[in-house]
């Protein structure tokens, strides 16, 4: 049984994804799938709020690698917010950070995207 759930919301061309729990098995693949669907619907920006993420393993890294690749292909913006240091360290080590925009929280990310227009 996967200890993972995902909620999302979207307004205009910004989608906010809120994963919860452990991103460490195939149950979390919905995150990759949902982001792909959002991009397909024309969302220009995706925000992933990590505040309820407890653990990310290699499968999780793979899921985020897929998300990064898709946003690059769609020339969209991927924002990570509310990240714990441990998660940020892993993404940095794996070279994912340079392809995403990191913000302290969701409001900062939304404010940035609003400014960016």
């Amino acid at each position: 049984m996967s200890n993972f759930s995902l909620s999302s919301r979207s307004a205009r061309d910004v989608a906010v994804l809120m994963p919860k729990g452990y991103i460490n098995d195939m149950g979390a693949v919905s995150l990759e799938r949902t982001s792909e669907q959002m991009l397909g619907k024309g969302m220009n920006s995706l925000i992933v709020n990590f505040s309820n993420v407890q653990y990310i393993n290699t499968i999780g890294v793979s899921i985020f690698t897929g998300m990064v690749q898709k946003t690059l292909e769609h020339r969209s913006v991927l924002c990570f917010t509310n990240m714990k240091k441990a998660h940020r360290d892993v993404f940095e080590m794996m070279g994912l950070i340079k392809h995403v925009m990191v913000f302290a929280d969701e409001d900062d990310a939304l404010a940035f995207l609003k400014r960016k227009g």
């Binding site: 098995d25 195939m26 290699t58 499968i59 890294v61 793979s62 690698t65 897929g66 990064v68 794996m94």
Partner: peptide, 16 residues
């Protein structure tokens, strides 16, 4: 095998 492939791609940041 799909899960194993996810682990491998996650290890090296390979999207495909």
């Amino acid at each position: 095998m799909r899960a194993a492939l996810y682990v491998i791609t996650g290890m090296f940041s390979v999207p495909s």
